[in-house]
Amino acid sequence: MVSKRNEAPITVACIQMEPIFGETARNVATSVSMIEQAAAKGANLLVLPELCNTGYVFSSRDEAFTLAENIPDGHSSRAWIACAARLKIYLVAGITERDGESLYNSAVIIGPEGYIGRYRKVHLWGDEALFFEPGNLGFPVFKTRIGTIGCQICYDCWFPESFRMAALQGAEIVCVPTNWVPIPGQDASREAMANILVMAASHSNSIFIAAANRVGIEREQPFIGQSIITSYTGWPVAGPASEANAEIVVATVNLADAKRHRNWNDFNQVLKDRRPEVYNFSTLNNASIG
């Protein structure tokens, strides 16, 4: 008789920090210090916020280009690669990427043995469209020794297709570097809309999600914190963090549970119950959308 595999749990950390605009070396040093603190708590998969090496609110494309770096040869990537090797951790970090004459709002995925891959934000928010090209790599997943990792960035969370694409490719956890901002109509007594969306995506795809937001006010733009880690059930296992303080949110999870417990009952499994033959978007009149 063959016993069921019992995958070892991992400890996930979301690092909620406040980047200082334009001070890349200082921001990377701050991130490394907080990474070290999280690793001391046992974390072996860590997520940093969106564009955490440069800051977010650019005034011009030229300013963004000046601060951007190549992946994986730029200063920020090299510092994180060295940190991951030293601490034997996996890291997903938001970074301003330069590729030739193109700019991307990206995330770099790093492991103990070095650079693994990158993700480029598909859905650009607001003025990002003035500075960045839309992501052109789709929704890749990365198979690692600790599990299969997907990635989204901030506004990607508003599109159910983003998480579904990751889940269908076998992702067990999706890491989300983010810069969530206040949403119009938000009820101050309720959890942030971003948290609700992340919880729903975890539940409807049976995946873990780790979303690391930033805090502070940058060039008059406030950010709302509330970093969160959700279980494949949809319920938080750590966070939400505070709205204003730098802090580290940590949870120990078993990524294998995302697949092992995907059957909700004798009949229903959220990915197998899909009926793509009736999701015929070609019949929609695009003029009616919007």
Rank of each mutant, 00 (worst) to 15 (best):
P177D: 04
F142K: 05
D73L: 03
A194N: 11
N245F: 10
S60M: 05
E218M: 10
L87S: 05
G55N: 07
S77N: 08
A85R: 14
L130D: 14
T252V: 07
A194W: 15
A258V: 09
N263Y: 15
V237R: 02
V32F: 00
E220Q: 12
T144L: 09
A85P: 04
G126C: 11
V215A: 01
A211T: 07
G94S: 03
Y115C: 06
R190A: 15
R61G: 07
L255W: 05
E69C: 01
I209D: 00
R190I: 09
T178K: 07
N265S: 08
F281A: 12
G55A: 10
D127A: 15
E133L: 14
C83D: 03
L137F: 08
Y115M: 09
T283H: 11
V249Y: 07
G234M: 02
P9H: 10
L137S: 09
E23C: 06
V122H: 13
D73R: 08
N245M: 13
S206K: 12
N280E: 11
P72R: 00
S102Q: 14
S31R: 00
G234A: 02
V32Y: 02
A167F: 02
Y155I: 02
N286R: 12
A68K: 05
L284D: 12
I173T: 01
I81N: 01
S206F: 03
L284I: 05
A68F: 07
I217Q: 02
V270T: 15
A256Q: 15
I228F: 07
